[in-house]
Design a protein around this nucleic acid. Structure first.
Lengths: 348, 348
DNA sequence: CCACGGAAGCGAAACGTTTCACAGGAGTCG
DNA sequence: CGACTCCTGTGAAACGTTTCGCTTCCGTGG
């Protein structure tokens, strides 16, 4: 592989001149020399070595992305995947490259920060770090540029996240508008900021909007389809049902709907279901899922922009993003009888 | 940030000794010195600079992943996403890091190989490069370690890909076994190896299995749900229908099913549908889709292993992976009348 | 005609490692 | 006791850049 030295040698010229010529460097070189250098570079198939450049400049023009290890699990990852997409798109615009740290365990007490701080990345972007992530905390302590997507809002780390409270309120308002006055809930992933916020908002706004939310209708969940199925099974054995259920994300809601379907419970006729995210599954399932859309791509892009600012030494701030209600086919007005009862719709 | 030099200075010792101590280097150091170095490293918060190490060693222990620009489009990307997951998992085991080249346009005549060959990656892995990709060809010419997932099988580049012909045959055999004797087809993404191979296999095996495949039943498609919807619309206006349709991937099949559903055509009662991939949408849609599963994760892992071999200078070979039929709810025996007709099932 | 300033190029240092060639010193063996 | 080897450790070069401080040269203005 040809180096800058080879060009210099061939042209009987100093390496510094070659460097200046190739970079339109901090120094001037005569157009004629510049041209000869350019030509020689092409002739020799020269390609600048970015490793050497990084070493010298102390910057890599690369950001590290740390995503949950569970990214390996497809079910959980619509959000992460879309976030990653948004990150890639924005990085392209910002001229940054992306190094994926798949082996970083963000939870781990003594995070192996070596990986993150070894000079290959100018900053780190975390996608959905668990609340109280040690890795994030250590980076904060090191004052190393970093940013979170859907991270813990209770810290000083710059964070881009949807306004979960508003989203939950929108969902419940939609149900109330349709005439529902009772609601169940499939909980979110524990330890994730989005899950915690939605869980809290659910309790608060159900009360504010006068929607009955019995404790036994708060079903465990983990943001996955199987989790949604489990939730359905918990509900199926109950005697009295809410007329609507809010799934803390679309995956859970879809799993829930499918499991009900297997027992002959029809959505939205027998029970309304609403999700959160507007994942591709929301559109693709039958009935298509009414849901709260969050602008994942935009969130991700904004996070990258913030990180780029931090790397340049500029200020950056956390941002909340507005969700949007997307009405599809899984919600409708409740049946006339107030509470759907198991016996009424589900002959076992 | 502390360097090896700082440790040396503090201990009044040479940098080489420090290096040997920290790496259990090619040279021995007395346990006592080694221990003092270790301690000093901790005290100073030393972290090895991998950029410098890469420069010196000429290896980065990083592979570059180049994925289609269209990775930004979620619909098209189940395959890419899962492939990426597999790649990440295997890289973790191999101790490799992953640099994503999102800006590489693989089609581009004069690929900007600079990005790929600038020393940051020891090898490149392409996910679904377009057939005849210039970027791949140039890497081949440079003899730079590289591997493709679902790439063009007609080249010398090491390629990991599902056996599409076998998959298509399985799908058609399944339909034949159910009693179908006519079939339609939604074509695959043009320019992608998987699409081209499935298109070809479809024609061949439909004939071999005596399944009628009229030219007007070969519907254009592009591996996306909207493409599948378009295909459905093309079929809806036709007078005579096949009793089953094979979608070249699940996305297309799901879009197809949904569009039919909107016009009151029921799957599998009125028409059977089978897909390819076993994407998450196959499981999540209603009815759940019968499909040909390809072991994407395994394919990806094998590609990484092959690339690792090439980087080490060892031999590596292309591999075909066996698909598997997954029977779900979207296929059944055809109705008694041989050809479904539009008027029979679809009152407009 | 001389001094000065700017332009163009050169040499060398530096970034943080790894690793080679070599130097002392201790131990071993004849 | 001298020669040999083995063991630790040192200094320096090298990886491929970027960039600082110098030198040289030319044109210009006083």
């Amino acid at each position: 592989m040809a180096t800058i030295k080879d060009i210099a040698r061939r042209l009987n010229i100093s390496v510094s001149t070659v460097s200046y010529a190739l970079n339109d460097g901090p120094r001037q070189v005569t157009p004629e020399v510049k041209e000869r250098v350019r030509q020689a570079a092409i002739d020799l198939g020269y390609r600048p070595n970015r490793v050497a450049r990084s070493l010298k400049q102390g910057r890599s023009h690369t950001i590290g992305v740390a995503a949950e290890r569970s990214m390996a699990d497809f079910y959980m990852s619509f959000f992460q995947y879309n976030a990653l997409n948004g990150v890639l798109n924005e990085c392209e615009d910002e001229g940054l490259d992306v190094l994926i740290f798949s082996q970083v365990d963000m939870r781990r007490e003594k995070g192996r920060l070596d990986e993150l701080l070894d000079g290959r990345a100018d900053g780190i972007l975390f996608i959905s770090p668990p609340a109280g992530s040690q890795a994030v905390a250590e980076l904060r302590a090191h004052k190393f540029p970093h940013v979170t997507i859907s991270g813990d809002p209770g810290t000083e780390t710059v964070n881009a996240i949807v306004d979960n409270a508003v989203g939950v309120k929108m969902a419940l308002q939609h149900l109330a508008d349709l005439g529902h006055n009772s609601v169940g809930y499939i909980r979110g992933g524990s330890g994730l900021a989005d899950g915690l916020e939605r869980d809290a908002a659910m309790v608060q706004f159900a009360r504010e909007l006068n929607l009955e939310l019995r404790p036994e209708w708060i079903l465990p969940g983990d943001f996955t389809q199987p989790g949604g199925r489990d939730a359905a099974e918990r509900l199926l054995v109950q005697k009295e049902w809410p007329t609507a259920v809010f799934g803390s994300n679309d995956e859970a809601a879809v799993g829930f709907v499918h499991r009900l379907h297997e027992d002959g419970v029809s959505v939205p006729v027998d029970i309304s279901v609403i999700g959160f995210d507007d994942s591709s599954h929301a559109r693709a399932s039958l009935p298509p899922l009414t849901t709260i859309q969050q602008p994942v791509g935009e969130i991700a892009r904004s996070a990258v922009r913030a990180l780029a600012r931090l790397i340049r030494g500029e200020e950056a701030y956390s941002t909340r993003f507005e969700p949007r209600l997307v009405v599809r086919g899984s919600t409708s007005s409740p049946k006339v009888d107030n509470h759907a009862t198991q016996s009424g719709i589900h002959a076992h």
